[in-house]
């Protein structure tokens, strides 16, 4: 039971970066527990070349399943089938959203243990131990599995991509999908709400959250970003993107972009884990929040406890003055 099965998410002919990280991690861990890393891909007409490219990240075998894309339950069926006929001790997922849904469904299906938001995995006596930060990252719990299969769902960007230059065989796996898996159908996928904005290349990011109070509140962020000038941009949390205040392309976090600007300045952002995972690589983190207990202060270099409506306009003026002077 030493092999590790990794779900590799692909979309429009490319694998998700976090899935490639998970394949790389699985290859490393499998070698430590005396097994192999296999990947499973589910989709419509996925090419041999795309599948076998996973060999370069350490997968020795790729199971290809013809099935609907973008929904969790068909993948649960596929992975349960693979586990039923293979020698798998663990299933591994990179960060994102589908991995949570698939991993949890698979845990239910196979009476397996599941650990989510995992930031590190280590091999110990031929078994895997997962590290999961809890309670707003104030403690890390270590999880082991007593089930035949252990399911590990990584946090966004937790697993590093490494290219091994290996090759993988591609095998088609036929799956009898559960009746209920067909009860959900994708109508439109990957809709980009709002205009295109580029936040990945910016040196200064002024990010706004629900604390801005309304769509109009983003003007405060635009003005401050404008004052910094040069290569600066405005970004957002999922809460405000879901609310329609800001374009999806400008969202930082688990289901958005990962950024690492020189300066990240948060206005009215609580600092939820799913946001943090997308910006914790920033060189300098400054936060303005009226709640002294907001989690964002735990990982800020400079925290300002106060009302952004009072502070931002004056800060904009002061930055402009400094630049001019």
């Amino acid at each position: 039971m030493a092999n590790i099965l990794v779900y590799a998410l692909q979309y429009e002919g490319a694998f998700n970066k976090n899935s490639l990280g998970a394949v790389s991690e699985a290859a490393k861990l499998a070698s430590e527990i005396g097994g192999e890393a296999h990947a499973i891909v589910v989709g419509e007409g996925i090419s041999d070349d795309l599948c076998s490219s996973l060999g370069n990240y350490g997968a020795t075998k790729v199971l290809r399943v013809e099935g609907p894309e973008g929904l969790a339950q068909p993948v649960v069926d596929a992975m349960a089938t693979a586990v039923g006929s293979g020698d798998y001790g663990y299933a591994l997922f990179g960060g994102g959203l589908l991995g949570f849904e698939i991993g949890a469904g698979l845990a239910a299906r196979l009476d397996a243990g599941v650990a989510m938001e995992v930031t590190a995995v280590r091999a110990e006596g031929g078994k895997l131990v997962a590290e999961r930060p809890i309670l707003g990252d104030s403690a890390i719990s270590e999880i082991s599995f007593r089930s035949d299969l252990g399911i590990i769902i990584g946090r966004l960007n937790a697993f590093e991509i490494s290219e091994s230059g290996g090759t993988a065989t591609v095998e088609d796996l036929s799956v009898d999908f559960s009746p209920f898996s067909g009860q959900a159908t994708m109508i439109t996928r990957g809709e980009q709400r709002g205009e295109e904005v580029d936040i990945e290349g910016a040196d200064v990011l002024v990010a706004g959250g629900r604390g801005l109070g309304s769509e109009e509140g983003f003007q405060l962020c635009e003005d401050l970003a404008g004052a910094f000038g040069g290569n600066s941009a405005v970004a957002a949390t999922r809460a405000v993107v879901d609310a329609g205040w800001f374009p999806y392309a400008g969202q930082i976090g688990q289901t958005g972009k990962t950024v690492a600007p020189k300066l990240y300045l948060a206005a009215g952002i609580s600092g939820a884990i799913q946001h943090k995972v997308g910006m914790q690589g920033s060189e300098t983190i400054v936060a303005i929040n009226k709640d002294a207990n907001a989690p964002i202060f735990e990982f800020s270099d400079l925290g300002i406890v106060g009302d952004l409506n009072k502070i931002m306009p004056k800060l904009t003026e002061a930055v402009k003055a400094k630049k001019g002077g």
Binding site: Q183, T185, G190, Q192, V241, Y248
Partner: peptide, 15 residues
């Protein structure tokens, strides 16, 4: 919202 943007999915009841 999932990995690549907003998805619209039709789901039959019970769900």
């Amino acid at each position: 919202q999932a990995e690549y943007g907003y998805d619209t999915v039709e789901v039959a009841l019970p769900a």
